[in-house]
């Protein structure tokens, strides 16, 4: 439903978005990841028709944002970064204004506004000026505005930024609920969000796509992927235990970290493509270690993220010099 074709945006001599192409289908939730200044917001602004691309095009349900901006904007619900809304209006007035602009009148408008209010739990504040609302409620007003017309395409720029953990959870639940009938793009720099809501992730840095795949593929890139996390209660020397773990034929490397009184945590990374859980388990049993925890790790996303995004800037540095 969303087809991004070679989108590029220059601000003067500076290239903020560099030749980005991707596709989002109905039912997909695309996580748009990247460090600050990566070009996430700029890309979203081009998709939603707020700024014109220097090159390339965004097609929504087959229609180009450049050729048919109005018709495309009707199909999109957009939550801009920071959820801007008119501060002097109440959520009730504001949502009715949005409904009117989107062409709903009379009872139809009331139904749309009420549904949106219910979906994001705004009931308690609908008659207070938006200016006086907390950050969490302001964000919900923005969300309500974006989903009011039940759009096929939903584009949200950092919808959970600055919310407390409960509010984050609510927003993620809401996104998951809506995922089935829509194509959704969510930008974030919070990695846990990827596994929580996204069916696919794209990582961009300095305007370029560096990774495009499922969250599982992303964690598979971690050196901790399938590593065994072992927590032992022991008075023994950590290095001695580490040496024993290293003798396992499937282990590629072992790290340890103190984890409290007589507690030591070990990370045993396996060689590529093999499982090491059983080996570690047997070794622990034969040595009579007191095992407090033993499990296989998914992989550490922040490690992968750092890896992907910093290696690109190194590469760029080399090119420049």
């Amino acid at each position: 439903m969303i087809n991004i074709e070679k989108l590029t945006k220059d601000f003067g001599p500076f290239r903020a978005v560099d030749d980005i192409s991707f596709e989002v289908k109905k039912g997909e939730v695309l996580g748009f990841l990247g460090p600050n200044g990566a070009g996430k917001s700029t890309t979203m602004k081009m998709i939603t028709g707020f700024i014109t691309p220097t090159k390339g095009d965004a097609k929504i349900c087959g229609e180009s944002i450049l050729d048919a901006p109005i018709s495309v904007k009707q199909k999109i619900g957009y939550l801009p970064e920071g959820a801007p809304a008119y501060p002097d209006m109440t959520p009730f007035e504001f949502l009715h204004f949005i409904a009117e602009i989107r062409g709903f009148t009379g009872e139809d408008a009331n139904v749309k506004v009420n549904n949106a209010i219910k979906k994001v739990n705004l009931e308690s504040v609908i008659h207070k000026p938006i200016d006086n609302l907390s950050k969490g409620f302001k964000r919900r007003v923005g969300l309500a505005q974006a989903i009011l017309h039940d759009p096929e395409i939903l584009i949200m720029d950092e919808p959970t930024d600055g919310l407390d953990p409960n509010q984050k959870h609510e927003v993620r639940e809401l996104i998951k609920q809506m995922a089935k009938e829509k194509a959704i793009v969510v930008s974030t720099h919070i990695l846990e969000e990827v596994h929580a809501v996204c069916s696919r992730a794209i990582i961009i840095a300095q305007g370029k796509i560096l990774f495009d795949g499922t969250p599982d593929e992303l964690s598979a890139r971690s050196s901790f992927h399938n590593a065994v996390n072992l927590l032992l209660e022991t008075k023994d020397d950590a290095l001695a235990i580490e040496a024993k773990l290293n003798t396992l034929s499937h282990a590629s490397s072992v790290e340890h970290a103190a984890a409290g009184d007589n507690l030591i945590r070990f990370f045993v990374k396996p060689k590529k493509g093999v499982s090491i859980l059983n080996d570690v388990n047997e070794l622990a049993a034969s040595n009579h270690w007191t095992v407090k925890e033993l499990h296989v790790m998914e992989g550490q996303l922040d490690e992968v993220f750092r890896d992907i995004t910093t290696s690109s800037s190194d590469a760029k540095g080399v090119q420049l010099t």
């Binding site: 602004k45 999109i76 801007p84 008119y86 989107r102 505005q145």
Partner: peptide, 12 residues
């Protein structure tokens, strides 16, 4: 206020 981004991405 940044509301211009909201306004100009509405179908107008």
């Amino acid at each position: 206020a940044g509301t211009i981004e909201l306004l100009m991405t509405l179908p107008i």
